[in-house]
Design a protein around this nucleic acid. Structure first.
Length: 740
DNA sequence: TACATTGCGATCCGT
DNA sequence: TCGCAATGTA
């Protein structure tokens, strides 16, 4: 039949596997998405499985959407009603139905790390634990680790071997209680609670495991213990689990991913069939061979033999630039040139990097050349302050017990309700064992409040109640618009009149537009569903690959994608491999896998760049080439290092006098200058410039950090004292002529 | 008591 | 550059 026609023998075997546990080890570019889509279509068409009996878990919502589309293309209408999504979205769906067994109401809020931190701060404040001694995110990351390994607060407490761990256990337990009080779940809960639920309720497990006749998991190498447990439970009756993955592309160990889930599949399922997909369809022979040479340096892996019938292609270009700004310029020039000479679209290019911080210099380079680009990742749309604020209103309307959201917006925009008033409200709610929003209803009974605060709380309460009363009647986008208007958030932004505030107002309008779009897409477009969706979308989900723009993203975000031309920027020791992995061999292997993932995103051309020096958060850092470059045999490389290319970035900011020496061949020009931006006027100050301060007398500039109004000068005064001064407050008199 | 300002410290990857 | 905690001011 033609469903199988285009597949190679291995792929065909995977697609037509009759039943029982199946592990597909799919090398980079070996067509694993095709295999999954075809297998699902095959299950529907040939094995007559109902769509509602199929559970397919992917790594991103975007991947799920693409998968659904491909299956629709193969199987048509028969595909409707499948369970397809990320672990988190599938679990949220299960929990809305089954959660009540554990006393979780279906209106629960989903807390992101921002919300988690806020909650943890409150808890630590209540317990009198210093926020500086134990930063809330540190405690939360331990708790997250525990949850993704299915360890309860009690278990953590019993394992604790020192006061620090005991404290973590105490916080864990308090944090859990707080989440339940707020009727909220964090990301880890979305996975671990269903597992707990299925452990405690055999009926619920039976119900769900019976429904899912076929379970398919993509990117199996990146599942954690909790996800693994869930997969085992959901496939416990029919035992039709199809796991697809590649141990060489496991890059989420730091998030709790456990590669042994994949490596031990055959032990966990003794009757498992294992199929290897080793023909690669994506990259040229050169790119494939080079990437194989790199990944073979890892010890902990299953050996594979990837091969391809693709052409040899061009050599991998490696270029060393003298600074991150030059690197940005190089990337822009290369793209311009390739777009022109090779007649490529901007959408063909991707620039990948290890850390989000690298994107700035790259962006500058592209912007200077006027190249269109999109950044995937960084500050996500739904994490913008204004969006989070509006969403907090909406969450509070849906889930009145959500005290984190309440605290977030009770004084945004300013209503004259400050921290003292808020803490009195919280005190009252704690004393009476009711949520803060219920305390708000009884504001007249709170004795300590002065009349002004009482009145203002009353106004806020009326606002919330009025909005909530309209919730049922209005469609989602109109609720959002109403919230933005009645909360006076919009007016508040527009009154500010700054460019930034207006951009924020536009973002809120975009959120409303998103609400319309949501409404059209869903049969039952409830606000609850909308909130869940926005909590679980990722930046990559929003990325539109048809846009005619260069894509910028981290190596992590690039997983699962491919581009005709890929640039890997910042191939330097300390970045990739990241310096935090220097001490640990396992982490080093993960860095190598990450680099490998980056290389294998490229179909036709791969360019790797590095900077000989980079501006770190504390001055200039000389950089050396990544050790991974040395793993690539020279025959695959073409090395190009431009010489004497002057900085094109205007108003270059530097911090030490010694740059020229450390970076070798830097041009003399602007390297000892930096902007002195004060009241909008741009000045350039040289290191060594003589200055005078009203209190400390004369001195000379030794260095600077930062930009614009935040510029901090390090000045050594003749009296011997050295001061770091914020430029706008330094009140310095420039004595030399040495600035313009 | 609330709000604005100042100054400090930190920065990997992200569901 | 940025967000936040501490400090200053109305």
């Amino acid at each position: 039949m033609d469903l199988l026609e285009s597949l190679n023998p291995r792929q065909k075997e995977a697609v037509t596997h009759p039943g029982g546990p199946l592990l597909v080890i799919a090398g980079a570019g070996s067509g694993k998405t095709r295999v999954l889509a075809h297998r699902i279509a095959y299950l529907l068409a040939v094995m007559k499985v109902y769509p509602s009996e199929i559970l397919a878990v992917t790594f991103t919502n975007k991947a799920a959407g693409e998968m659904a589309e491909r299956v629709r293309g193969l199987a048509g209408r028969a595909a409707q009603g499948m369970w397809m999504g990320t672990f988190h979205s599938v679990c949220a769906r299960i929990l809305r139905v089954e959660g009540k067994i554990l006393g979780i109401s279906s209106d629960f809020s989903i807390y992101d790390d921002r919300d988690q931190t806020l909650l943890m701060k409150q808890i630590m404040g209540d317990l009198g634990i210093s926020l500086t001694k134990l930063p809330p995110p540190a405690a939360l990351s331990k708790i997250s680790w525990a949850k993704s390994n299915l360890l309860s607060a009690e278990e953590i407490a019993s394992m604790a071997g020192n006061p620090y761990e005991e404290r973590i256990a105490t916080l864990y337990s308090a944090y859990e209680n707080a989440l339940r009080e707020n009727n909220a779940l964090d990301f880890d809960d979305l996975i671990s609670i269903p597992v707990r639920l299925f452990k405690s309720s055999p009926e619920a497990l039976e119900r769900n495991a019976r429904r899912f006749r076929q379970v398919l998991i993509d990117e199996y190498q990146d599942t954690n213990r909790a996800q693994y447990a869930l997969v085992r439970m959901l496939s416990s009756i029919h035992r039709n689990v199809c796991a697809v993955g590649d141990d060489d592309q496991s890059i989420y160990r730091w998030r709790g991913a456990d590669i042994t889930n994949l490596l031990n599949f055959e032990q966990d399922f003794p009757d498992a069939t294992v199929i290897r997909l080793e023909q690669s369809y994506r990259s040229t022979k050169t790119i494939l061979a080079a990437s194989q040479a790199v990944i073979k340096c890892n010890v902990q892996r299953k050996d594979k033999d990837l091969w391809t019938e693709n052409s040899v292609g061009r050599k991998i270009l490696v270029s060393a630039l003298s600074s991150e700004w030059e690197e940005g310029g190089f990337l822009a020039r290369s793209i311009e040139q390739a777009a022109r000479d090779e007649d490529r679209r901007y959408g063909d290019f991707a620039i990948l990097y290890r850390t989000n911080a690298q994107s700035r210099a790259i962006e500058d380079g592209l912007r200077r050349s006027g190249l269109p680009y999109v950044i995937v990742g960084g500050t996500k749309f739904y994490e913008r302050k204004e969006i989070k604020d509006i969403l907090a209103y909406l969450r509070l309307l849906v889930n009145p017990r959500d005290a984190v959201s309440l605290a977030r917006i009770i004084n945004v925009p300013n209503r004259g309700i400050g921290s003292v008033t808020l803490s009195r409200l919280r005190q009252f709610s704690a004393d009476n064992g009711i949520p803060p929003s219920a305390a708000l209803e009884r504001v007249d009974e709170i004795g300590e409040l002065n009349s002004g605060a009482r009145r203002r709380l009353g106004v806020f309460r009326d606002l919330i109640n009025r909005l909530r009363s309209q919730l049922e009647e209005l469609p989602v986008p109109e609720v959002i618009a109403l919230v933005a208007k009645d909360s006076t958030y919009m007016v508040y932004l527009k009154e500010q009149g700054t460019v930034e505030a207006l951009a924020r107002a536009e973002n809120i309008e975009e959120l409303v537009a998103g609400g319309f779009e949501f409404q059209e897409r869903n049969e039952e477009p409830t606000l609850r569903k909308f909130l869940e969706e926005v909590s679980l979308v990722t930046d990559i989900d929003l990325w539109d690959d048809r846009r005619e723009a260069v894509s910028l993203m981290t190596l992590h975000n690039a997983k699962g994608l491919e581009f005709p031309v890929v640039f890997i920027a910042g191939a330097e020791e300390g970045l990739i491999p990241h310096h935090t992995s220097f001490e640990d061999e396992e982490e080093m292997e993960e860095e190598r896998r990450l680099f490998y993932v980056g290389m294998t995103r490229a179909k036709q051309r791969l360019v790797i760049s590095m900077a000989a020096g980079r501006r770190g958060f504390r001055g200039w850092m000389p950089q050396v080439a990544s050790r991974f470059l040395e793993n690539i045999p020279g025959e695959f490389l073409e090395i190009m290092t431009p010489v004497g290319d002057a900085y094109t970035r205007e108003g270059l900011h530097q911090t030490r006098e010694s740059h020229g020496r450390s970076a070798g061949r830097q041009p003399a020009g602007p390297r000892q200058q930096f902007d002195y931006a004060d009241t909008g006027e741009e000045k350039v100050v040289r290191i060594g410039t003589r200055v005078r301060h009203p209190d400390w007398g004369p001195g000379s500039v030794r260095g600077c950090e930062g930009y614009g109004a935040q510029l901090r000068l390090t000045v050594r005064f003749d009296s011997g004292i050295i001061k770091r001064l914020l430029a706008s407050y330094a009140n310095l008199e420039m004595l030399d002529q040495d600035y313009a």
